[in-house]
Simulated assay, not measured.
Amino acid sequence: MQATATIQRLYLKRARGEAGVASTVVHCTAGVGIDGDVHANRLSPRQVLVTLTSELDSLGIAPGALMENIVIACDRPALFRPGAALVGASGVEIRLTMFCEPCRRIAHLAPRLSGLLHRRGVLGVVVAGGALRVGESIALVADRYPALPESPYQKFLDFLPTVPCGRVVRYADVAIAMGVADSFVRALPGYIRRSAGGDLPLHRIVNARGGLLDIVPDQAKKLQAEGVAILGNSASLQKYAWQGPDQAALLADSGRPQ
Rank of each mutant, 00 (worst) to 15 (best):
D35W: 05
Y191G: 03
A208M: 08
G210A: 13
S183C: 13
K221I: 13
A187Q: 11
P149L: 10
M98T: 15
P152T: 09
H39D: 03
T4D: 02
R76C: 02
I72F: 03
P63F: 09
T6K: 09
F159S: 05
I61G: 02
R186G: 07
G121C: 08
P63T: 09
A131I: 01
R105D: 12
L188D: 00
P152R: 03
I34K: 12
Q219P: 00
V21N: 15
P149V: 05
V216T: 03
Q247D: 07
L59V: 09
A249V: 02
S90W: 04
A30R: 13
S114E: 06
A220T: 04
L157T: 14
I230W: 01
G135A: 08
A225K: 11
N233Y: 09
C28K: 11
T97L: 08
P189R: 00
P102K: 05
R204Y: 02
V180C: 12
S114A: 09
P201K: 12
V21A: 14
L113E: 03
P45D: 14
V127S: 08
T51V: 14
R46E: 01
A73P: 00
R256I: 03
L43N: 08
L160N: 12
A19C: 14
V169E: 00
P161K: 10
V216C: 01
R9M: 09
A181D: 15
I230P: 00
S195A: 15
A89K: 12
P201R: 09
E150F: 09
G115E: 10
S195V: 00
T4R: 10
L96Q: 03
S23L: 12
V87E: 06
Q224S: 13
K13S: 15
I72Q: 11
A78N: 09
I94F: 05
L223W: 01
K221D: 14
V216F: 01
G124P: 05
A229W: 04
A241S: 15
N41P: 05
R209T: 06
V26Y: 07
L202E: 14
T97Q: 07
R170M: 08
K155R: 15
D182F: 04
A241E: 15
V127K: 01
G91T: 03
E136W: 12
N233W: 08
A241W: 02
L10T: 11
A5S: 15
P201L: 14
A78Q: 13
R256S: 12
R170Y: 02
A40P: 13
V216W: 01
R133M: 05
R42Y: 07
G129Y: 07
R256W: 06
C100K: 12
L157N: 06
R256C: 10
T24V: 01
I34H: 06
I34R: 07
G227F: 02
L212F: 11
S54W: 03
G232I: 08
V38S: 13
Y191N: 04
Y191E: 07
Q258C: 08
A84G: 07
F156L: 08
R170S: 10
P245M: 13
G135Q: 08
L223D: 14
I205E: 04
P82R: 06
P257V: 11
S254I: 02
A147F: 04
G129Q: 14
T53L: 15
S151I: 03
P217C: 06
M67P: 00
L66K: 04
R256T: 08
N207R: 10
R104W: 07
Q247G: 00
E18W: 08
L123F: 11
V185K: 02
V48S: 11
H118N: 15
H39Q: 13
A235P: 04
R133Y: 06
Q258T: 04
T51Y: 06
